[in-house]
Nucleic acid binder design. Sequence first.
DNA 1: TACTAATGTCGCAAACATACGACATTGTGT
DNA 2: ACACAATGTCGTATGTTTGCGACATTAGTA
Lengths: 113, 113
Amino acid sequence: MNKSEVFDESLQELALFAKAVSHPARLAILKFLAESKTCISGDISDYLPLSRTTVSQHLKELKELGIIHGTIDGLKINYCLCNANITKYLVMFETFFKPIKEASVDCSIDSKS
Amino acid sequence: MNKSEVFDESLQELALFAKAVSHPARLAILKFLAESKTCISGDISDYLPLSRTTVSQHLKELKELGIIHGTIDGLKINYCLCNANITKYLVMFETFFKPIKEASVDCSIDSKS
DNA sequence: TACTAATGTCGCAAACATACGACATTGTGT
DNA sequence: ACACAATGTCGTATGTTTGCGACATTAGTA
């Protein structure tokens, strides 16, 4: 039923990035990783009000997009933000939204149709 | 089951924006509106490989976030991109991701765990 | 007033996302 | 080898998204 594949490759890729960052928990994870620059491991689970399992799954999604990366260090795993891919997606995002923003117009303040 | 509300307001709001633009069809709609600057109505449905119903729903989602706006013109409806809200969300996005990008590091090229 | 056109809303089905407990895996220390 | 700790994976319940046909609404038009 999902027709996503009929759209432009670039739209699909941007949509995947947007989807990855479309959950507060994943945004919180990114923020946490940015703040604890030492790439601290899964005390992320302690920090967030979610079970370890759930956090693990959110991490997996971010990993699969390539915007974070985990390095095994004994029993622990150090996660960090992955510059190359983050930059890639941010550039993609900006490139897409620049013309959108430029083409936008003043709407009545009370929008919503 | 959805625990989104336990997170920071600002994270939730950014997540809502990301969710709104996390589908290729909605990105395609935004792009179409940017290109046909005359705020053309629902030939959007003709342009996209989706049924009118489905397009209507995607439009509704974008409308509810306030990033597009529809003006009734007889039988037709002219949609346009709503500057104030688009700018608001883009600023929010950039503010969030700037420190993320700055804190990111070089990862092995073959990322994914 | 009836007909048609452009659009929105409802209700459903299939797919996907979220959250979590229970289990599996892997490394560390004894 | 054994127990424990940090993590990942599986199965499953529940909620949300996507897509669409059928119906409703509203505005022009004969």
